[in-house]
Design a protein around this nucleic acid. Structure first.
Lengths: 173, 173
DNA sequence: GATAATTGTTATGGACCATATCAAATATCG
DNA sequence: CGATATTTGATATGGTCCATAACAATTATC
């Protein structure tokens, strides 16, 4: 659907000097018609998703956590003792792509790989103390700055209804 | 949030031969707990968006149109006589990235760039006859196979409510 | 004990996104 | 008018994310 996050350079130019504004004669240059696009669920879904991620990143700027990283920390916390393949696959991350991600989190001392004694091929994933602390702060930031703002915009009941419908699409479509 | 579209290799192995299944003794290996992840709007939003795009691509396989290409054709049809910058920016596409996209559509004879006589820098975009025909077929496919399936899943009223909430997020968040 | 499967990893290529830069054309303004 | 700035389409380039193939070490299978 396309939709990116460009910055809309506000070219105001602060004019209004000795020159007359040519408003009246302007043949309505701007204002494109979206048309049926605004009825396409995929299009609106993508735009909404980009907005939500964008806001998430702003809320997490102090912790430097991306949505993907946050989801990994959440899942490792909830499922201690699992290996890379298990964590990655339930998040829809392919194992090869998960390696660099873990390298990053581990280099920041947020989580650790531990060689399993049962199966010496696999790495058990755990949060470090720092990882637990950062995740706790992240949860608070998300709850108070991110999800709370969605509640303000939609209302509690609508937000839950939205979540339910999106879950249905994600799981049953 | 992560979420990709991997194919879930169904490793069934059709065993059940002379070997006994070790179900009982199995220490419940699978089944990760999603936990708070399933309450994170961004996570569910992303997963739903991937599912919707995936289904869109399947429905459009015969026409070989991506969601982004479809949105371009729709917008050009609704706004004839606009140039690349205008079409690209309302879709959130950066001008440099729009060039290859148009090269593709133009090479398939779906749309055409026409040098404007007013401003010889800009290219006016129009759909070719083939482009109009393909877009018409695409619309039908989307309506009957794609959006209809979402109606079946959510119900008409819910689908509209979903669209309204997503639009609100996309525009006011 | 030979063969197959799994785990983490590397390498690699594609798709998408973003910035800087350019030539041609136009707009702006002294 | 003419110098300067801006706009348009385009190229080059780099980053991120996603996907596949292949590999060594380890384990499972038979």
């Amino acid at each position: 659907m396309t939709v990116s996050k460009t910055a809309e350079k506000s070219s105001e130019k602060s004019a209004d000097s000795a020159k007359v504004r040519k408003d009246a004669a302007e043949p309505q240059a701007e204002a494109l018609q979206l048309g049926e696009l605004s009825e396409q669920l995929g299009y609106v879904l993508k735009r909404a998703q980009l907005k939500v991620f964008e806001n998430f990143l702003r809320c997490m700027a102090s912790l430097q956590l991306t949505p993907a990283q946050f989801s990994v920390l959440l899942l490792v916390e909830k499922n201690p003792g699992r290996n890379q393949t298990e964590i990655a696959s339930t998040l829809g991350i392919l194992r090869p792509n998960f390696v660099a991600m873990l390298d990053n989190l581990e280099s920041r001392d947020l989580c650790a790989r531990i060689r399993s004694t049962n199966d010496r091929r696999s790495h058990i994933l755990v949060l470090t103390d720092k990882g637990k602390a950062v995740l706790a702060r992240a949860k608070k930031l998300v709850a108070t700055k991110h999800e709370a703002r969605l509640n303000d915009l939609l209302g509690q009941a609508n937000r839950e209804a939205l979540l339910a419908m999106l879950s249905k699409i994600a799981n049953e479509f």
